Simulated assay, not measured.
Amino acid sequence: MTALGFLYPGHSAEDDYPRIEQLLGSDIRVDLVHTDIGEDAHRVDALREMGSPERLAAGVEELRLTGAEAVVWACTSGSFVHGWDGAHEQVRTLARAAGMPASSTSFAFVHAAAELEVRRVAVGATYPDDVADLFAAFLRTGGAEVVSVRGSGVVTAAEVGGWTEAEVLELARRADHEEADAVLLPDTALHTAALIPALEKDLGKPVLTANQVTVWEALRLTDRRVNAPTLGTLFTREPVVQVPGQSGA
Rank of each mutant, 00 (worst) to 15 (best):
E14P: 07
L7G: 02
F6D: 03
D133E: 15
D176M: 01
P101Y: 13
E21G: 09
L65S: 14
L195A: 05
A3Q: 15
Q246H: 14
G10V: 02
E178F: 04
L47I: 08
A132I: 15
V147R: 01
G161S: 02
D187H: 05
L134G: 08
V240S: 09
E117L: 02
A194R: 03
E178K: 10
G59A: 05
G151N: 08
S26H: 10
G142S: 05
P9R: 12
E69N: 00
P197R: 06
A3H: 15
L203V: 07
A113S: 13
L219M: 05
A95N: 00
F138V: 08
M1H: 10
V207E: 06
T236C: 01
A210Q: 00
F109S: 08
H42W: 08
T230A: 15
A144M: 15
A228F: 13
L234Q: 07
S52R: 05
E69T: 00
V60Y: 05
R224L: 07
A87G: 11
I37V: 14
V154N: 10
N211F: 05
V44I: 15
L23P: 11
L195Q: 05
L208F: 09
A182K: 06
A218W: 03
A175P: 06
F138G: 00
G59K: 10
G25C: 04
P239F: 07
E145S: 05
S104A: 13
T156V: 03
A144N: 08
V91Q: 12
Q22H: 13
L63N: 06
L221F: 08
R43S: 12
V72Q: 10
A172S: 02
T156M: 01
G67I: 11
G99F: 05
G248A: 14
S52A: 15
V240A: 11
G5D: 03
S106A: 15
V240Q: 08
T230N: 13
T164K: 07
A137M: 09
A3W: 10
V44Q: 14
E167V: 03
R48A: 07
R173I: 10
T192R: 02
A132M: 06
V213K: 02
R150Y: 05
L199A: 01
S148P: 12
V131H: 06
E115P: 06
K201H: 10
L32T: 14
T192G: 00
Q242E: 11
E200M: 04
D130V: 13
D15C: 08
A175W: 00
